[in-house]
């Protein structure tokens, strides 16, 4: 009689071991898949969040560019005093207020204010220049001290010409209801004579 080296139960033991191996392998595979799917889901949520952020930034840029090409004199007219005014409804054809892009609701607002600016220069002072003053020879020029007397656009000495524009784009993240916002500041200038 020829006996197997490991006895009569050898074949049964081999089959049982294979089954355990398969179960173990399947468990490991399931655990790995679960963790990887969680990872992918986390990444997907992050990508969606980034996408909303990029849309918000594009909306911010678009709104501010519309303000920068708008008539500044009309913007100044829309501001009765020197206190900042916040607009949440369309102004001069610029869309403001709630704007829906895809499945995200954005709230766009703009705060405008008259910005006082003053410019200093050294003026060419012909009265104190030497008698041999020659407009083509800088050696004969004399300048005044730095002064802003002719460059104060503050609404008192000269009318306001600069409008400060502050645009805010806000939205709510679907997860956790987190409030997000992006903002930018720029200036519009009235160049009319």
């Amino acid at each position: 009689m020829i006996m197997p080296r490991n006895g009569a139960g050898m074949a049964g033991v081999r089959r049982g071991t294979t089954l355990i191996e398969l179960i173990l392998a399947f468990l490991i595979l399931v655990i790995a898949l679960l963790s990887v799917s969680g990872l992918i889901s986390f990444g997907h949520r992050g990508t969606q969040k980034d996408f909303r952020m990029v849309q918000g930034i594009q909306l911010l840029e678009d709104t501010m560019n519309r303000f920068l090409v708008a008539s500044c004199s009309q913007l100044l007219t829309a501001l009765p005093g020197t206190t900042p005014v916040t607009f949440t409804a369309p102004l001069l054809g610029i869309p403001l207020g709630p704007i829906r892009i895809g499945n995200t609701d954005y709230a766009v607002s703009a705060t405008l204010s008259k910005q006082a600016v003053s410019f200093s220069t050294r003026e060419l002072d012909i009265t104190t220049s030497p008698p041999e003053y020659d407009r083509t020879r800088p050696a004969t020029w004399r300048f005044s001290a730095a002064t802003d007397r002719n460059g104060r656009y503050d609404g008192v000495n000269l009318p306001h010409r600069v409008v400060k524009i502050h645009v805010i784009v806000g939205w709510t993240e679907l997860l956790h209801n987190a409030q997000r916002r992006v903002e930018a500041v720029s200036f519009a200038v009235d160049f009319t004579p």
């Binding site: 920068l68 600016v117 410019f119 002719n150 460059g151 656009y153 930018a184 720029s186 200036f187 200038v189």
Partner: peptide, 18 residues
């Protein structure tokens, strides 16, 4: 970008004034 555009306009206002 947006801030620099505004500052350039203010600088241009000064040039046109003086």
């Amino acid at each position: 970008d947006l801030l620099a555009t505004g500052l350039q306009k203010i600088a241009l206002l000064k040039f046109k004034r003086f």
